[in-house]
Structures are given as structure tokens and as C-alpha cells.
Amino acid sequence: MNLRSRPSFFAPLAAAALMSACATPGTPETSAASPATDDPIHRHALVRQAAPAPEWARLRMTLNEATRNTPGVTVGAGDAQGLKIEIPVADGFASGSTVIRPSLAAALDTIAPALASEAGVAIKVVGHTDSQGSEMVNLRLSIDRAEAVVAYLAGRGIAFERLTADGRGEADPLTSNATEEGRARNRRVELLLRAAR
């Protein structure tokens, strides 16, 4: 009798042993009585807990209180979509630089603790410049400055995945760029707060 041409008696046993060896040790089998989601150790891999919905009115009060003694910072009235925080950066960066100066750092330090505790809030940092210089250079500079603010806030306890950066350059001025006062006002960073998805 040719043993090679016959199906092996041990093949099904070997397959069962291999499948058993590949199973995660200590993982209970899922059943109707005990679904995998009841397993506290493995639940995080199956279902991500939703962050609590932001309470915009309470957060606005907290931010207004935190920034009460911080010159120039304004917290918008807000709506059902979220809030906007406007931070002047006329002295927040040196001309053409992305290095955060002490005045901007102080403003961000007053805001960061309130935002760090709000897991349900996503923060979009938008940089703005005045119209001095090249439009493309200003656009790149505004993005780089927004990214610097994101890095700063992440270093103050705000989860990095909640932060995004964007820049508008000179495209959205608050006032005319014809005067130094107007240009100073247009140089700003906005934090757009929305519900995290």
C-alpha cells in the first residue's frame, strides 16, 4: 500500500492543534451569554468610548474667566457648533519667525488647562498674517505659526489627535492693512473649537 497517496490520519489533528496554538491564550470564547464586549480587558480593542459632548456655555465661561487678565484674547459668543478664541500675535512672534514669544506663551498657558480637560473638543488652530511681503510667504508663515501653536498646546497636555493646524495668510483681515495698527490687529491666531468626531 502506498502511504503517500492516502490522506493522512493525522492531518485533521494537526490542523486542530495548529488552530489551538494560534488562539490567544486566556481569551474566553464569545457566546450569547458572555459576549466579548463584557471582557473588560479586551473591550478597548472593540469599542472606543465616545467623548462627552461639549457644554459650550460652561466652557465659554471657563475660558472667559481664565483669560480675564490676558490682554487682547477674546472668546467668541459661540453657537451650537462651538466657539472661537482669538489671540493677537502682533508681539507673539518676531517678524518672519515661528518661535513663540513670552506674550503668546502666556496667553496659551491661560487657555491650555481648560482645553486639556475637554476630551470632547477638537481644536483647529488657524494662523493669520498682515499683508506685508509676499502672499505665498505669508500663507506658508501662517501655517508654520499655527503648527508651532499646535506643538505648544500639545506640550501643555492637550491630546495631539485633538489638534489640527491651518493658515490663511493675509486672506482674512479683520481690518485694513493700510496702518500699523490695522496690520497688528490682523496678525492673530484663532482657535476654532468644535465637537470631536
Rank of each mutant, 00 (worst) to 15 (best):
Arg183Leu: 03
Gly78Met: 09
Ala51Glu: 13
Thr70Leu: 06
Asn2Gln: 11
Trp56Tyr: 06
Arg6Tyr: 13
Ala105Ile: 01
Ala151Glu: 15
Arg58Val: 14
Pro7Met: 06
Ile143Lys: 15
Leu141Ser: 09
Gly82Met: 03
Leu174Asn: 07
Asp172Thr: 10
Tyr152Trp: 10
Phe10Trp: 08
Ala23Ile: 00
Leu153Gly: 02
Ala159Ile: 04
Val137Arg: 15
Arg188Gln: 05
Leu59Pro: 03
Asn138Pro: 03
Gly26Ala: 13
Val89Gly: 08
Phe93Cys: 10
Leu63Trp: 11
Ser20Glu: 06
Ile158Pro: 01
His42Asn: 11
Ala114Met: 08
Gly169Glu: 11
Pro54Cys: 11
Ala106Glu: 09
Arg43Lys: 15
Ala122Cys: 08
Ser134Gly: 10
His42Tyr: 13
Ala107Ile: 02
Lys84Pro: 00
Ala146Glu: 03
Glu65Cys: 02
Ile87Asp: 04
Ala77Phe: 02
Ser142Asn: 09
Thr37Ala: 12
Ile123Gly: 04
Asp166Val: 06
Ala151His: 02
Ser131His: 13
Arg4Trp: 04
Arg140Gln: 13
Val73Met: 04
Asn177Ser: 13
Thr175Asp: 11
Val150Ile: 05
Glu29Met: 10
Asn2Ile: 01
Met136Cys: 02
Glu170Phe: 01
Pro102Phe: 01
Pro28Asp: 14
Ala21Met: 15
Ala45His: 09
Met1Lys: 02
Leu83Pro: 04
Thr110Ser: 15
Thr24Ala: 12
Leu13Ile: 14
Thr129Asp: 14
Ala146Leu: 07
Pro113Gln: 07
Met61Phe: 04
Ile111Met: 07
Ala16Phe: 10
Arg140Thr: 10
Ala184Tyr: 00
Leu18Phe: 10
Ala154Asp: 07
Ala122Phe: 05
Leu46Val: 03
Asn2Thr: 05
Val99Tyr: 06
Pro88Trp: 03
Asp144Leu: 12
Thr110Phe: 01
Thr67Met: 02
Ala196Met: 10
His42Val: 10
Val99Pro: 00
Leu18Asn: 05
Ala50Asp: 11
Gly72Cys: 05
Asp109Thr: 02
Pro173Ser: 11
Ala53Leu: 14
Ala23Lys: 05
Ala53Thr: 12
Val137Ala: 15
Asp38Asn: 14
Val125Pro: 02
Glu181Leu: 12
Pro28His: 10
Met1Thr: 06
Gly120Thr: 04
Asn138Asp: 08
Pro54Glu: 04
Glu147Asp: 14
Cys22Asn: 11
Thr67His: 03
Arg168Pro: 00
Met19Phe: 10
Phe9Gln: 13
Ala154Asn: 06
Ala66Ile: 01
Glu65Leu: 14
Ala116Glu: 09
Asp109Met: 08
